[in-house]
């Protein structure tokens, strides 16, 4: 279970990291504000999950070598400040997070309790993103083309969400079911298979080069003096 917690926390850290960098650059002022609020939720959720592991959240967020992060390959693919890529990725990941949190919320104890509180906020995200997928998919040929391109670009990485986590086949099936209807409703398509377990990626520390760059940027100031207060 703690593997799943760390994987989800690292996903959320990187999603929040990437999306918060959009603040001030979004396509519509109102949506800029809304997506920044959700980026803050992701960063806050990462903090809550790191705490649940009994560790100092900052030490986990900033103090590990790149290979020790357990975020999946999907969350680190650069979006190049393209809103279609950003939205599709957030949509795919939000549904994955919902499923993992649903599972973590079962049972008694600290982690289930935290997970069930996060789940409520997670559902705000999926609802918001489902609506955006639908709107952009139905927003004319140009938008539809861009959205389909984003799905096509990200689909090969999406299966890696399920690398090295518990109940992967079951979760993959539930996730496919959850995203199918918003995607179809938007007039878009996405197909992903569950990759073979022998394929190593971010969840087992085999990160792409772009993550190593993102990690260096994210930890740059902190690393100037890890013992200092900032």
């Amino acid at each position: 279970m703690s593997n799943d917690v760390l994987a989800l926390a690292d996903d959320k850290l990187m999603l929040g990291h990437t999306q918060s960098d959009w603040t001030g650059l979004g396509p519509i002022l109102e949506e800029d504000i809304a997506s920044s609020a959700m980026a803050q939720d992701d960063l806050s959720h990462a903090t809550v999950l790191y705490e649940a592991l009994g560790e100092d959240p900052d030490a986990l967020a900033f103090g590990r070598a790149a290979a020790d992060y357990r975020c999946c390959d999907l969350v680190t693919v650069p979006d190049e400040l393209d809103w279609a890529m950003a939205t599709v990725r957030r949509f795919i990941c939000a549904h994955f997070a919902t499923i993992v949190l649903e599972d973590l919320a079962k049972g008694e104890g600290d982690i289930p309790e935290r997970a069930s509180r996060l789940l409520i906020e997670q559902r705000l995200q999926t609802e918001h993103l489902d609506a955006w997928i639908r709107r952009l998919g139905r927003g004319g040929d140009d938008a539809k083309g861009r959205m389909q391109h984003a799905f096509d670009t990200l689909a090969p990485h999406a299966g890696m969400l399920f690398e090295a986590i518990d109940n992967r086949a079951d979760r993959h099936a539930r996730w496919c079911a959850a995203i199918a209807s918003p995607i179809a409703d938007a007039g878009l398509t996405m197909h992903t298979d569950l990759p073979d377990e022998s394929v190593h990626g971010g969840r087992r520390g085999a990160h792409a080069d772009h993550f190593v760059e993102q990690h260096a940027e994210m930890t740059q100031v902190w690393a100037e003096d890890p013992t200092a207060a900032w």
Binding site: I28, L136, G137, R138, G140, D142, A143
Partner: peptide, 14 residues
């Protein structure tokens, strides 16, 4: 960069 999004939102809708 955001123009296509504004156009899509204006066109699409629930």
């Amino acid at each position: 960069q955001g123009r296509w999004v504004r156009n899509a939102i204006a066109k699409g809708g629930t």
